[in-house]
Amino acid sequence: MTVYSKLVPIGWIAHLGACYYLVRPLRSLSYRTLLTIVPCAALIYAGSQNLPQFHESSVLIVSLYWMISIRLVDLIVFSPEKPLSLPSYAGKFLWFVCPIVECDLNYPIIFDVTSAGIKLVLAIWIYRWFLVCEPRNSYTQMGMLYLLICTSMYADDMQIALVRLITRDKYATLSVNDFPFKSRSIREFWDRRFNRINSSLLKESVSEPTRRLFSFSSAVAALTSFAVSGLLHAHVAVACFGASSPLPAFTFFLAQGAACCAETIFSINLPKPIGIVVTHMFLLLTARVCIRLPDLAGSNYFSLNAPPLLNAKWLPQLRIPKFFSKIYYRI
């Protein structure tokens, strides 16, 4: 990591402070835009240089820088008239690390702990499966990768349990996923089920401001949110996975946005079982065609990002189905 990369966190703190005290009071929209976006772009660029490729920490760092920028543009450029104290301003960014919300969960804390344990066991099982598989852009590997992403949220469940325990069920942290496999539409998947921290950010800081300021329709505002998300993930693909082009990841999210718009415009509402199947078929198809994530990640990603307690003898060890590695479906 270069000296510039090490100074990036200090640069972000300085930029956040300067935006709150110096840039936000400016009346000129063009000045606020310029003084907010240009330093953000420079910090994102500097912070993504020389990061170790295929490391999960690199993905988190680049994603966090983008999320800070998106929030900052909303607070400084789009919504300077809203009353905002310094603690509230700081909380808007700390929320990314610990998204505390009022607890409305009606199940005991032990459920979160149990869920975390089950997800960890499944994540280890899928991880071991990927280690013995040759990376291929198949529907099987895309499906297993989807399961791995969902089961990797065991730390999220433990965080929820810890916050609930400390606050005596007054508060919890927002769960990243909310049973995404139950999604009966593309819109439900991205808006309410999958990666809810990112979807909340895009809704608050992209969709709602663009509708308010530019009179965008809900469909156009949603497409704008997916375009911003596409830029984020395209940069992650290039900076963290060494992708040769940012277009596949960007195209994938544009396709998701177009599907959400189509569902809204044509009022598509399929019966639950059919909707779930169609939704996940569309997700797997577009992910396989556009991103080719198993090929992009390769075996390097899995060898460098082992789950915790991988070799713990006391954890249940599920048997790896060897025949899965030989399945390869072509389009």
Rank of each mutant, 00 (worst) to 15 (best):
I268A: 03
I276F: 02
T251V: 09
V278L: 05
N269P: 04
P273K: 00
I268E: 01
V289R: 01
F266V: 07
E263F: 05
L283R: 04
L285P: 02
P271C: 07
R288M: 07
H280V: 08
T286Y: 01
F253M: 10
T286I: 07
L284G: 05
T279K: 12
F253R: 04
C260A: 11
H280A: 03
F266W: 15
L284P: 00
L283K: 09
I274H: 04
V277I: 14
P271I: 13
G257D: 01
P273A: 00
S267N: 15
L254V: 13
M281C: 14
L284K: 10
L285D: 10
I265T: 05
L283Y: 09
I265G: 01
V278I: 13
L254I: 15
L285V: 12
H280N: 14
C260F: 05
V277S: 09
I274K: 06
L284C: 09
G275N: 06
F252G: 07
A258D: 06
L284H: 11
P273T: 00
H280W: 10
F266P: 05
F282N: 01
H280C: 09
F252P: 04
C261Q: 06
T264L: 09
A259V: 13
A262N: 04
F282V: 14
C261T: 10
K272Q: 13
F253Y: 15
R288Q: 04
A258H: 04
A255Q: 07
L284I: 07
T279D: 10
M281K: 04
A287W: 02
A287C: 07
K272C: 11
F266L: 12
H280E: 08
F282T: 09
T286D: 00
A258V: 08
V289N: 03
A262F: 15
H280G: 05
I265C: 01
R288H: 04
P273N: 00
T264Y: 08
L283D: 02
K272M: 13
T286K: 01
V278S: 03
V278G: 00
A287K: 00
V278M: 06
T286G: 00
E263W: 04
A259M: 14
F282K: 03
M281V: 15
I276N: 02
F253E: 08
A258P: 00
N269G: 05
I274W: 08
I265E: 03
V278H: 03
I265Y: 10
L285Y: 13
F266M: 10
V278N: 02
P271M: 09
H280Y: 13
L283V: 15
V289D: 04
L284N: 01
I268P: 03
V278W: 03
F252N: 08
S267R: 14
G257V: 10
A258W: 00
L270I: 12
A255N: 07
T286L: 01
A258Y: 02
Q256Y: 03
L285E: 06
S267D: 14
V289L: 06
V278F: 03
A262K: 08
A262C: 14
V277P: 11
Q256T: 05
M281E: 03
T264S: 11
C261H: 07
S267F: 14
F252W: 14
L283P: 00
M281F: 10
F253W: 12
H280P: 02
G257R: 03
N269V: 12
G275A: 02
F253S: 01
A255L: 14
L254D: 11
E263A: 04
M281I: 14
I268T: 11
L283H: 06
L285K: 12
